[in-house]
């Protein structure tokens, strides 16, 4: 599994409140795929304490596993905080 595959899988995770996928929203801060297809995602949410936190995090795990990841790890961070200006920003390598 490549990093591009993982990012493409994440575009299938649509924020249920906004109707936009988490990559386009700029919620994904980092994606790493190791040689064993273990995918680590660093991401944020539009607001801390978001009631949809579990749903979105679960969606990331499911989308990556469906795309072929052997195991997944999701770190949700709030620093730097998300702002709408991050929409469309590329994911740092």
């Amino acid at each position: 599994m490549t990093r591009d595959d993982a990012v493409a899988a994440l575009t299938g995770v649509v924020d249920p409140e906004l109707g936009v996928d988490i990559v386009s929203l700029g919620l994904v801060y980092g994606v790493d795929v190791d040689a064993c297809d273990v995918v680590a995602v660093t991401m944020t949410l539009t607001t801390a304490g978001c009631p949809l936190h579990d749903a979105i995090e679960g969606g990331v795990h499911r989308a990556l596993e469906r795309a072929g990841a052997r195991s997944t790890r999701v770190d949700v961070v709030f620093d730097p905080p998300w702002t709408p200006e991050r929409m469309g920003a590329p994911i740092p390598a």
Partner: peptide, 24 residues
């Protein structure tokens, strides 16, 4: 990600994630 502040160990339930559990 450099400079990112991670709440809890990787894969663990973060403080904010815990904030969303417990509803009926």
């Amino acid at each position: 990600m450099s400079g990112a502040r991670v709440y809890g160990a990787p894969g663990a339930r973060t403080r904010e994630r815990m904030a969303s559990v417990g509803g009926p």
